[in-house]
Design a protein around this nucleic acid. Structure first.
Lengths: 200, 200, 200, 200
DNA sequence: GATGAATGAGCTTTCATTCAT
DNA sequence: TATGAATGAAAGCTCATTCAT
């Protein structure tokens, strides 16, 4: 029997260690013993709090997603210009990717494995995120910042894709990045496009 | 002892079967026996051609990347407008994702596992691809289609990100997509940006 | 350190709970935690009174055997006829099997496991029991109720065997049994044999 | 996937080794590795032929029961006197217990563990055996060798109980037994009973 | 004394790899 | 060359036992 969901210190300790190990080694490579070691507890202790390695993984992902959402949803910028909103969107995500490297890898990872359940969460989370972006664009249509004819669904997906590459690039590279500058550039490119608009 | 790299019929047979199995089950879930079964050969035969499961996986990825590059690089469109080049870029990749579903999943997959070596290839391949896109943008700068101030590195990366989401979306969804229309819309958005440019 | 053999209340509590659990699940299936739960004490408490699960089991068996012997030896019927003594022997054991189901299963169980020590007890206990029956038969020889040529050792063993099947049958079946009638029939068959004696 | 039921040499080898180990150590004490060692094969080989330790155990029991039944049912003695039939019944079983010590222990063992399925088999097998004995008695009633009033069900059970103790006694003791003599004595006691019939 | 969270030895089981045929 | 039966290292998981509270 697993202990109650009450957030005991040990439980959190294990989740954090697991996030680190899973993000580095992936699910299959990570040995339960590695996680125990990283958490500074015995192998058996993990099974006091989680039914199985699989379940632990799912909890780590879920927890990461929750934290991720909490962090990146935080600010509501409805009153700002679309340009600023996009800037902020990228800035926030890039910052998160840097600050919470491990969690980020787990939350954004492309987990082929895992119960259908976990896939469900990730798809849902992504959809939710994309929908949030889409709503942002819809609002911009209303204010006239964006053309009515824009396929906001597609555009939101594209923004999400850009967000993805940049985050993973930032996560994996060793260099330090000026994420504010990157966010600004992205916002600019996104708003104006690549094409040279005559008379600008 | 492993056979020479010479492409024997059996060898190719195994690689193809492996691509299918790996793309469906992922590296760890895929059992060598599954691959042997899918290839219609004995388990031992695989080891005649590949040193280990790991090596086989690497060869599959390498082969997939090669084939992928071959297919998506195929056309040279230097003389076309940037808009058309982008259109074509997306069209080609989307078409490839649909036509070669299995290979696509292997080639674009986010393989956390695997030797550093394989990661190397994938990063290299990606960089190469991104560079190709970057060059495309650089040429457009020269022709005046794009502003000199554009950070073509960043822009190329963003394009690559958009390419990624769309391909995976197309790969995983069950619906049929009008990829020509998608490509067109993407090209439009990419060129003009989201912002409503006054006087258009 | 284990407590003195002094029968504390807790100690008895645990033994009783253990008897129940062991009789239902067998030694290996029974978890120490199950027993603790059944006894309404903490897991650690059991180790205050018993050195190990094994020792606890041994004590349970020993205690059960003691109780069993106490109950079934109780009456001394030397002055009765052999027929009546046999009747009583079976009646007593059958009654015990029904009344003390759990203890019975432990006391009569065929424990393949366990220290040689415990096997020793069980064999000794059995031998003792068989000897008691043998003595009964020997006395019957003296009174002329039984032929001098009878192999009383063998006969006692056979009676013990009959006792065994009947008890286990009564223990495991759900029906209610008229054990007095059974005892009577057994006594009859045992005394007269199966063969139809001419002139009876 | 387990290999076909075809009686391959290895399969039988493992079953025999398992019978030996299980009969000595019991199910839980026996380690799969012990069995592999006893069979002179690798640990993994066992899993080529059996899905699990549990399944192996069940097959061993089933096989033992089958063999046991085959051996002890062999002779049909309907035309002999009841005395001779009983003699033979005991002789056969005792001989089997001695000749096939291991199998005997598995076939007659009191397995508390194991799937309900295996319990089913054992109960069925026992019932079948008892019924066979009962039929023997019923036939004897018809020929007038036995009193019509005999509770043949009970008597058969009692015989089965006697058979049990004797077999286990023979199995566990180190002495050599004159089983023909034992069988003769048992037949005598069984037929005539313990009671001294006046005028015999 | 009493507890139950923590532990790790020990077990079952999987599956990549070998090798006799 | 091709095979698949045989193998054993490696990993997940259980649970008797300990010990800080």
């Amino acid at each position: 029997m697993t202990k109650s969901t009450t957030s005991s210190t040990k439980r959190i300790l294990v989740i954090k260690a697991a996030a680190k190990v899973f993000s580095r080694q992936g699910f299959h490579q990570a040995r339960v013993e590695d996680i125990a070691l990283a958490a500074g507890v015995g192998k058996g202790t993990i099974y006091e709090y989680f039914d199985s390695k699989h379940r632990l993984f799912e909890e780590v992902v879920q927890e990461s997603l929750k934290f991720y959402s909490g962090q990146t949803d935080a600010v509501n910028l409805k009153k700002f210009s679309l340009h600023d909103q996009i800037h902020h969107l990228f800035y926030m995500h890039l910052k998160f990717s840097i600050d919470y490297h491990d969690i980020s890898k787990v939350a954004l990872g492309d987990y082929t494995l895992g119960s259908e359940e976990i896939h469900q969460w990730m798809r849902e989370m992504r959809r939710e995120k994309v929908i949030r972006v889409k709503e942002m664009l819809e609002r911009a249509k209303e204010t006239g910042e964006v053309d009515q004819s824009l396929d906001s669904d597609l555009a939101a997906t594209l923004l999400w894709g850009m967000l993805g590459v940049l985050c993973s690039q930032v996560m994996w590279s060793d260099e330090t990045h000026d994420i504010d500058q990157i966010a600004e550039k992205v916002a600019h490119i996104t708003m104006r496009g690549l094409g040279l608009v005559p008379g600008t």
